[in-house]
Amino acid sequence: MKKHIIGVLTAITLSTSTVAADYPSKDIQGIIQWGAGGSTDTVMRSISPHAEKELGADIILTNKTGGVGAIAMKYVNGKKADGYTLLMGAENPQMYKVLGLSDIDYNDMIAINVLARGTPIFVARNDAPYNNMQEFLDYAKANPGEVKIGSTGKGGLTSIVMAMLESQVKDLKYTSIPYNGDGPALTALQGDAIDVMPAVLGATIEHVKAGRMKAIGLVDVEANKLLPGVAPITETLPNMESYLPWGPFFGVFVKKDTPKDAVEKLQNAFHKAAFNPDFISLMEKRGFTILNIAGEEAEYFLSGYRSTSSWLVHEAGFAKHSPADFNIPKP
């Protein structure tokens, strides 16, 4: 009893200088880059309890939205590099430099775990007069400007997928209708407000299965076992292969210069957590490919994503800066 009181008292006096050796000695704060209910939020909230068990400390999750995730990133990098503040984000920061949103990206942080990657897919409203990529492209060329394609802003998944498509198919003219997120856009697709939408497989799968929209092309090199009948886009446009596989991802990061011991403990905890069968089945059902990578492997993945996307965006003409300014190599 007495010992504990002394313990509390010494903690009060010495607490600011916690030694890293006994990491984690207090709650960890997890900053989720996107809002409650979104895919990033769902993924992070479903892995955190497993990681908590491995770490033996609570992870308090907080959603900090805004500026396509740049605000959360700025917040985490403004904190001490002690491993007590985690950034739980999606792919967006890899485009910050070329879009002029921030001068740091994930390559300037330490990857704890890149958890999983999604696959993009083209879906169309049910009564659209095309059923696959070839028919769609023919129709769009024959009726310039008539096809309404949902988009989620510059640097979003749709803009990059469309940039890939336009690099292969010249003179594609369509009307782009912006939505703030693939959820609202897919809703609009079911109400016939838009005709086609490139979105992540997980967001569309239940709607496609129920016959509320049709899948016209998978942006990957091979078919996906969740939607076996849908042809990969490389069958129509073989040169797309140079960009693929490509897809949005989720990951956990800490600030640069975080003590090695804390980084290792976090990496181990998340690595083990990602093997949890509940987590795996959740990710598979939503059509995500589990990566569960850290260290050099994660860095290689992140750099690859950054160079493909940055150069695509730059060549499509909506980047603020050239990737060359940041020494981002061509893919």
Binding site: H4, G7, V8, A11, I12, S15, T16, S25, K26, D27
Partner: peptide, 10 residues
Amino acid sequence: REWLAQLAQW
């Protein structure tokens, strides 16, 4: 946060 952790431990 340190106080809370100590309290919880206690």
